[in-house]
């Protein structure tokens, strides 16, 4: 098997006495979409932030591209990127300007070309000179995703990227992500509390609850292991604390 893109071993995070992430281990394989699923407070965002070196783990190890994150953070992040519904782009800049800033930040070669390409993919050419503050949340999400691809990353960390979108746009966004993954072989870690979304987009899912992995595998297998019809039911069962 090829070397994993991300390898996490017994990752644990305490916030004071709260165990937000509890001995989590997993691997992200090349070209894979790995979905982190779980109710609010399950620890999904905390894991993403630890993968980006924005939050320091209490214990455990994180390796990305075979490199230790703590020692090689800058090097790793040069080839990774991130998007979240809860993060925006500079409000007062135009779509194009904000992408330019990130093109510089990631030292992208042929910046103009790259930006044009992304604007085309995300169908934002018509609004390239519009200020970010005037964009709808759907457009801001798309701009965030465009930003996340600016450095042609090998791995993407997406924290609830479709949370603020209406179902139609969310669906389009997922289709787009699948296409990008297929065409460019990007590996993706994706979080959501939307079951249906996870079944649809993920190659493999990890089910988190109170910081712990309680199930993992192909979406269909996870559902099976809980002897339920779909992830929705599994989710409800867990969230309500019933025994599997």
């Amino acid at each position: 098997m090829a070397d994993p893109i991300v390898e996490v071993t017994r990752l644990t995070k305490f916030f004071k006495t709260l165990k937000a992430v509890d001995e989590v281990s997993f691997r992200l394989e090349p070209g894979e979409i790995l979905g982190f699923l779980g109710p609010n407070g399950a620890g999904k965002t905390t894991i993403i932030h630890m993968l980006l070196g924005l939050t320091t783990p209490t214990s455990g190890s994180i390796k990305v591209f075979g490199l230790d994150l703590e020692k090689h953070r800058s090097e790793i992040l040069q080839q990774a990127n991130f998007s979240s519904t809860y993060v925006s782009m500079p409000y007062s800049l135009t779509v194009k300007e904000s992408l330019e800033v990130f093109a510089w930040l990631y030292d992208v070669r042929r910046k103009e070309e790259k930006i044009s390409e992304l604007l085309r993919i995300f169908e934002m050419e018509g609004i390239r000179n519009k200020e970010v503050r005037h964009l709808s949340s759907g457009l801001i999400t798309r701009l965030n995703l465009a930003k996340a691809l600016i450095n042609s990353p090998k791995v993407l960390f997406l924290d609830e990227p479709t949370a603020s979108l209406d179902p139609d746009i969310a669906d389009k966004t997922r289709t787009l992500l699948r296409r990008i993954k297929k065409e460019r072989g990007i590996s993706i870690i994706y979080t959501s509390h939307n079951m249906k979304e996870m079944e649809e987009i993920s190659d493999r899912i990890i089910f988190l609850h109170k910081g712990r992995i309680i199930a993992s595998g192909k979406p269909a297998d996870v559902v099976q292991s809980f002897r339920r019809q779909n992830l929705e039911e599994v989710f409800l069962q867990l969230a309500r604390g019933e025994k599997a």
């Binding site: 980006l52 924005l54 800058s74 040069q78 991130f82 993060v87 782009m89 500079p90 990631y106 970010v132």
Partner: peptide
């Protein structure tokens, strides 16, 4: 503060920036 007001802070710090 501009970056905080614009909720852009994490995007910047999730980059290789030192």
């Amino acid at each position: 503060l501009e970056d905080i007001w614009a909720r852009n802070f994490l995007n910047i710090f999730a980059s290789p920036l030192k």
